[in-house]
């Protein structure tokens, strides 16, 4: 059986691997995280009704980044036979992003 925290960590790695993702973000409200014995994966919430990933972007435009993160997370989930919906939340954009417009 695959442990939830392992899936969450794999999702975090996949999201961080997407160009344009500067980091994962716990959000501003209720912390987006997956607690497990001894620690937590911040920026990934594995809820029964869906997976939420919070990211900080380091470039604009944002929609392609969100799309790529969704696709990357989907790949991880489908590898373990999970078809929960994926929500990507762009929590923050680094200030230098505006001067680094990549199309």
């Amino acid at each position: 059986m695959v442990r939830v925290e392992d899936i969450a960590a794999a999702i975090a790695d996949a999201a961080l691997g997407v160009p344009g993702v500067a980091g994962l973000s716990p959000g501003r409200g209720v912390e987006v995280s997956t607690p497990y014995p001894g620690g937590k994966v911040v920026g990934v919430r594995m809820a029964a009704d869906g997976v939420t990933v919070g990211i900080t972007a380091d470039r604009v435009p944002l929609p392609p980044i969100a799309d790529q993160v969704t696709a990357a997370v989907r790949r991880v989930l489908s590898a373990v036979g999970d078809d929960r919906p994926v929500t990507v939340v762009i929590d923050d954009v680094l200030p230098e992003a505006l001067s680094r417009r990549v199309t």
């Binding site: 939830v4 912390e31 995280s33 997956t34 607690p35 497990y36 014995p37 919430r45």
Partner: peptide, 19 residues
């Protein structure tokens, strides 16, 4: 405070049952 009770209870449930 500030943490999801749902997330924490899920994790507690898994941890306790597993251990």
């Amino acid at each position: 405070y500030g943490q999801s009770i749902v997330d924490i209870s899920d994790a507690v449930r898994r941890s306790v049952a597993g251990q």
